[in-house]
């Protein structure tokens, strides 16, 4: 089972990285979500599957058998919530960026005229406005 999940994590990570490398920012965001799922599954697997490591021991020493380790689940839950908040913010941010900049192509945003590097002092005085 661990092997299977390891491959799944690897596959998800590959898909996520591929999407994050695409120029379109929505693809980037989807890639982030997929990669986030890969990370969550990874934590889940790293925390040992099944209930062979009982986390709760009663004061008498008796082991509470059918319980799995809750900590990875708590971590994943936190990570999911945070990823959710980041994704929600990202959608709003990209929407606004689309409206203001007219594009969601990462390469075009880099070359947007009014955010490009200002001319160096040795250059000719520019005629166009670069003022922020």
């Amino acid at each position: 089972m661990e092997i299977l999940l390891a491959f799944l994590v690897g596959g998800l990570a590959a898909v996520g990285v591929y999407l994050m490398l695409r120029p379109h920012l929505i693809q980037f965001l989807i890639g982030f979500l997929v990669l986030g799922n890969a990370a969550n599954l990874l934590i889940f697997t790293a925390g040992r599957l099944g209930s062979q490591f009982p986390p709760l021991v009663q004061p008498s020493g008796a082991v509470l058998e059918p319980y799995a380790n809750p900590l990875p689940q708590a971590l994943i839950l936190t990570a999911i919530v945070i990823g959710f908040a980041l994704a929600a913010f990202g959608i709003v941010l990209f929407y606004r960026a689309q409206q203001a900049l007219g594009t969601l192509n990462a390469e075009t945003i880099l070359e947007a005229p009014d955010v490009s590097p200002a001319p160096s002092p040795v250059d000719e005085l520019p005629t166009e406005g670069v003022r922020r």
């Binding site: 908040a85 929600a88 913010f89 959608i91 709003v92 929407y95 606004r96 409206q99 203001a100």
Partner: peptide, 21 residues
């Protein structure tokens, strides 16, 4: 509150794009 403000913001921006541009 946080989610609702995001959703309302998107909905309003979608219907009145001029307000945000």
């Amino acid at each position: 509150g946080a989610l609702l403000s995001a959703i309302f913001g998107l909905e309003e921006a979608a219907h009145h794009p001029s307000e945000d541009a």
